[in-house]
């Protein structure tokens, strides 16, 4: 009963959040300088041409009127048509979303694996030089933003030691048998590991650039909670039962220490998705973020709106998922 109430409340707050995002985006991009019509017409267009084109896109109406037209369309699943690409926004956005999702999830997995390994190693070897080394590395990882890591990775693994691809999502000459836009997932399902390898070779560096700062945050926080947990009585009791230090950390401390980290990972994952915008640009990766930058440059209003709304849906969705996982992992939250 309580769970259902919470869920309903969450859905309502989510709807309000999305409405707020829609309103802000819609108005802001119409108030800031720059206008899509000016981008479309050649220099020397007459005032009449401009007025005609403006009317075609409905930009001659007042902003609240425009919002109403767009809003009713969205409720019916119609996000309008991209001004520059002349295609339905929904189609464009959903076509690019899988590329960004695959990149973000790969980055998240890498961050969890790297950060988790660092935290576990640091806890096992606490108060040694190894822990000190891990702390220093994490400090460095944290103090440099993801796009600078992207440049460093391009320089090192793309130019100096060119072992990974640094541009695009997949080698263009390859024949792709895919029916969906989830290339990596589909290549794995079709057992076309040659394609998976090519995709991963393209994704690895941008994913790593996104993962490095998050890995450092996960590593620091998880190690902190693990070290606190290691002093607790049930951990000591497990030691007297003959468990090795590594086993004590893994099976006694970790399940409890992981909870605060989990909440943080949820919040940070949304930042990571935000980070894809610039990282995708850097690596010419054909995802949503890259499309967003083009849309902003071209003042493609309907496309910007569509992308921002989609990002907002992803953010709220991730947060909801984190809350549900938290309840599943923490038995004390389940009853009551």
């Amino acid at each position: 009963m309580a769970l259902l109430q919470t869920l309903i409340l969450r859905v309502i707050t989510t709807a309000v959040t999305l409405l707020g995002v829609a309103v802000i985006v819609f108005f802001v991009i119409r108030v800031v300088p720059g206008n899509p019509i000016a981008m479309m017409l050649p220099p020397g267009a007459t005032a009449e041409d401009i007025a005609n084109l403006t009317a075609i896109y409905g930009l001659d109406k007042s902003i609240p009127q425009q919002f109403f037209i767009w809003g009713t369309g969205v409720l019916g699943g119609d996000f309008g048509t991209s001004i520059t690409l002349k295609q339905p926004v929904l189609e464009l956005v959903l076509g690019r979303l899988p590329a960004t999702l695959e990149l973000s999830v790969l980055a998240l997995v890498m961050a969890i694996v790297i950060g988790g390994a660092a935290a576990l190693t640091g806890t096992r070897l606490r108060e040694t030089r190894v822990e000190g080394g891990i702390d220093v590395a994490q400090g460095m990882a944290l103090s440099v933003p993801d796009f600078l890591w992207g440049l460093v990775l391009i320089l090192v693994f793309g130019v100096l030691v060119p072992v990974f691809q640094i541009s695009g999502r997949v080698t263009p000459s390859l024949q792709l048998p895919f029916v969906s836009d989830f290339y990596l997932v589909e290549s794995l399902l079709r057992l076309r590991f040659d394609l998976s390898l090519d995709l991963l070779s393209h994704m690895l560096l941008p994913a790593l650039a996104l993962a490095i700062p998050l890995a450092a945050i996960i590593g620091q926080l998880l190690k902190q909670s693990l070290k606190e947990t290691m002093h607790l009585d049930y951990v000591t009791l497990a030691r007297t039962q003959g468990y090795s230090e590594a086993k004590v950390i893994w099976s006694q401390a970790l399940p409890n220490a992981i909870l605060p980290t989990l909440t943080l990972v949820g919040v940070q994952f949304t930042f990571l998705i935000g980070g894809t915008v610039i990282i995708e640009r850097l690596f010419s990766y054909e995802g949503l973020g890259n499309m967003a930058i083009d849309a902003v440059i071209n003042r493609d209003l309907p496309l910007i709106q569509g992308i921002v709304i989609l990002f907002a849906v992803i953010f709220t969705g991730v947060n909801l998922l984190v809350d549900l996982t938290y309840a599943a992992l923490n038995p004390r939250l389940r009853h009551g």
Binding site: D233, L237, Q252, N256, N330
Partner: peptide, 14 residues
């Protein structure tokens, strides 16, 4: 084996 002092903290909550 050990019988610990505080039963409230000596069992793993999860």
């Amino acid at each position: 084996a050990l019988i610990p002092q505080d039963p409230l903290t000596a069992l793993n909550p999860s």
